[in-house]
Simulated scan of single mutants.
Amino acid sequence: MASATRLPLKSIAFTTALVVAAGSSRINLRALLTSTFTGPGSYSRIAALLVVVANLKNVPFAWHYRVFNAILRHCVFCKRIIPPELAPSTLFLPVITSSRSPLSECDYNFHKSNSTYFSDLDVTRSHLVCCLLQPGIARLHHNAQEKLVLDAQGNPVLGRWGIMLGGVQCSFKREIGIYEPFEMWTRMLCWDRKWLYVVTHFVKKGTVRPRSYILTDGSWFGSKPYDVKGDGKAAPEEEDVDEKNIFASAVSKYVVKLGRLTVHPEVLLAASGMLPERPGGWATMNGNSGDSTPEIVEAGADADADAAPASSGDEWDWKRIVAQNERGLKFAEHLAALDGLHHEFSGSKAPALGRYRDFIF
């Protein structure tokens, strides 16, 4: 995600489409199908083709397609359109990404292997981050003109930007069977001075439905408007989710960089129109406030002197945003604490149990 977002996405999409179109025009499809499904060795070719189709999710470059599909969809072809006054109510809402677990993802128990959860997380996180933060990403990409991040002299900071994955923790609850469909419900959990925390729930497909959809799946060639029926309210309390339908839950953390500077998450959120007005404003990177932080930034939320109890009603004002963020931080602080594990590496201070080769390398 970090490297991809810096690339010229429109140029890549146009060039790829041009190459595919040019290549397709030179292929005699009828002759290709005839030679594949008839003649000597046709049974072997058909069997190989069926294996590839049955495991299409894990063929070479399938992961790249899935991630770039999310990035291009939200950043180029189908940018979200949400009225500014309603955007804060969508900040903590999930995006839902559906998938299956083919044979190539399963272990010897014919369950989805724990390692494959992380490649799926790459895809669903890309959908969420690009959907929520696309306006801020565009402004950060043109920081020289937008002046979101300034140095101590008040000049816009120049440099390559990126959204970097800093860590993932996944808690497994129930197994996902072979070819069993599932959904990934991914939403913003919270943020602190350095990290954006994202939570993902792997859920049995069809067992849980949101009250409505704010954004439709849309089209690669145009956006669809905000669904006015989706007001961002939580589902009624009596519609509790049966935990038996939750396969796993994961928390990921992202850091936003511009050159070697760490960009405060609130700067990107505000630039994306996701934060309501707040007395005194949100965090800035204006170079004079001291918020323009260097490479190393302490994790943890700032002491919020003006934080107040969440407001009543359905309005997503700054008080409710702060309260929801602090609620998420109670979970995120445990992931942040795992950074201390690096100090537990013994290295050459102690002997090793053994050394073994994995596969042929």
Rank of each mutant, 00 (worst) to 15 (best):
D107L: 13
L56A: 10
F92D: 06
D120M: 01
E105R: 06
W63N: 07
F118T: 06
L72H: 05
N143K: 04
V123Y: 09
V123R: 08
A47G: 03
F68A: 08
A48T: 10
H64V: 13
V129Q: 01
F118C: 02
G136F: 00
V52N: 08
L29H: 14
P40S: 12
A62D: 05
N28A: 13
K147I: 01
F77R: 08
N143A: 02
V123S: 02
L50M: 15
I81H: 09
I82E: 04
C78W: 06
V67M: 12
I137Q: 05
A62E: 10
S113K: 10
V129K: 05
K112Y: 05
S99Q: 04
S35G: 14
N114W: 14
P60K: 04
E146D: 11
Y117L: 14
L50W: 07
R73V: 10
Q134H: 08
L50Q: 14
V51L: 14
H111M: 04
H74V: 10
T34K: 15
R125T: 10
N69K: 13
S89A: 15
R139N: 03
V52Y: 03
L121W: 11
F77T: 14
A144G: 14
T124A: 05
V76H: 00
A54T: 14
K112A: 03
P84N: 02
L103G: 02
